[in-house]
Amino acid sequence: MTAPKKRRNPLPAIAQAGPVSVWMVLFVTVPMLFIIYISFMSRGTFGGVEYTPTLTSYETLADVTYFAVILKSLQVAVVTTAVCLLLGYPFAYYIARKSADVASRLIMLLMIPLWTNSLMRLNAWMLLFQTNGPVNKALLALGIVQSPVKFIYTDGLVLLGLITNFLPFAVLPMYSSIEKLQKAMLEASADLGATPATTFRKVTLPLTFPGIFSAIILTFIPALGTYTITDMLGGGKVLYIGNIIKNQFGTIRNWPLGAALSVLLLLITALLIFLYSRFAKIEDMEVL
């Protein structure tokens, strides 16, 4: 037996949930579907798109040049993420174990640099690592090197930029999941005979896993897709997926290829999200 239906006034629901729904469908769903569609089309003679289905773009991706770029981008993103996790987790733990008052101040202290223009912060690294910049001067003075090291426009400097840029976004989700961890649980574990290391492995780590995975998603994916950091610190000499996508819509104008690369990034994102959903609830993902 089922309940008889009764009509409710739909107006409040439409007024409140309507705008966001329309916006998301119009500016997220439709563009996403369209870019997938475009990736299977042909390149127009004068840029743009010719609507004849083809797999050319995807075949191009398998080409050695592009494939190398994709691999290198993945590699750099993996390293960035790993370093951010390793540096960020103890840092987040340090903040989370402070009293609420101190912790909120420390978080504030973490946020303030983020109000500074991010490109100018990247530029500052450039200035520090110039050939005749302070870092080289210090190295020479200390006798560690005999002649100035060329840091700028190297993968190393790009990596430094990526790490310092994304580290706060790795710290924040890990902080909020460590903060939620109850002290009583750690005490219970110690009480039951576990060493600090065992407690960390058996209790802390599994319970803060959603925060760690959120940090991975919030670091790995943007690191994979960035072109501004590589532009600022790589001087356009170091190419990553993001630069190539951007170029397909600017100077080079090969939309389907850019679309195919975008679809590749979408697939990687979807894969990570799928993995996340296997271990934790999507709603619990810490995004701030």
């Binding site: 949930a17 966001v20 369209f34 819509f249 939309w255 679309a259 990570l272």
Partner: peptide, 29 residues
């Protein structure tokens, strides 16, 4: 309401998808 789950999912897309992807797909549209 019907489709609420879908909208909730869509709300995660701009947060997790690389911005460049979102930007170029909007550009094409």
């Amino acid at each position: 309401f019907r489709g609420k789950k879908f909208i909730n999912l869509m709300l995660y897309v701009p947060i997790v998808v690389p911005e460049i992807v979102l930007a170029v797909s909007m550009l094409i549209i």
